[in-house]
Design a protein around this nucleic acid. Sequence first.
DNA 1: GTCCGGGGTC
DNA 2: GACCCCGGAC
Length: 386
Amino acid sequence: MRRDLPWRVVDPATGMRNPYFSLVSELMLQQTQVSRVLEKFGQFMERFPTAAALAVASEDEVLSAWTGLGYYRRARLLHAAAKVIVERHGGQVPSDLDALMALPGLGRYTAGAIASIAFGKAAPLVDTNVSRVILRVGGVDVAGDDKAGLAWVWEQAEVLAVAAHKQGVVAEVNEGLMELGALVCTSDNPACLVCPLRDVCKARAMGKQREIPRAKKQAARKPVVHTVLVLSTADGRTLVERRAGTGLWAGLWQAPTIEGAKPASEVELRGRVGVLGKVRLGTLRLRQDEDFVFQTTHRDVTFRVYRGEIAAEKMIAESATHTFLAKETIAELGMSSPMRRILLDGTQQTSGDAAGQESQRVKADGVKRAKVIQTKRKNGVKQRDD
DNA sequence: GTCCGGGGTC
DNA sequence: GACCCCGGAC
């Protein structure tokens, strides 16, 4: 029931995990499921094989390698952690729990995971999987984010880690707890019949394994509209800008975008690109893609994309905020998933002229229901080997 | 096709 | 409280 994951490789010379592999994988796994991390981890490690290599990379390189994983702040924090590791720890990931906690991006869980699993220290570790297992075994009927409940879970995990450490198996026990939560004691459909803890599990004895932990309440998604202009030149360069340093997709790159509760008009969009991008659009006709919706935790982002091609760059003056870049260069930038699709996966169907489409697709209040787009899967990704 | 929900740190 | 993306259930 143990998964063979690429960051779990053991160096035959030392019999140890590579702690830098653990660091990168744990940061990637924060708030992110294994299957998605699998797609990115190998690429990332090839590009940044050591903490030192990561530390000297540019932030854009790191963000680019992170594209698609989401929560891009993690990438910046990992980058910052690599710098600290080089400056203060001689390029080696520290093994001490407090030193790990002091690294940017590492909280109690991640520091505990690296200390116990990569270094065999007596450190506890609680992620949502472990929390669920412990709450169920203890029969503690609370919500997943209940403060007192969580404090109790951490105490239990601490007791377990200390006991396991005495037996020299803290790495196995901590990792085993996570595997159990991920593969057997799952949120939806726990496989109690094959669970090694079935006879001591209070939730199961009470028949409440499905109710524990209770769901935490979710924030509502707020609808917003991003109106985008993809302006390309005949020689294949596209105008891009950098997003603001805070908020959604902070610091990532995009085609010039106006954000609002309602779609911006084509006139507004042309005006903004003319002023900020210092580009003279003249009478250039724009085509309009079909609207699509991209969901994030707190927002339903409707994308309305206009596209136009000019003969050559017509920068009226140097723009401080905008630049024309070739597709290969853009591919190297950090971008949100929907923006990557807009800029690199080519145009969507853009039949007819924008004005004609407009009257059909748009209601008075803004956007007609647009379909929710999800990324196409790459085929053949192995997810588990249990 | 639509949409619910999983997953830590600051 | 803010922050992303996508699998899979329906």
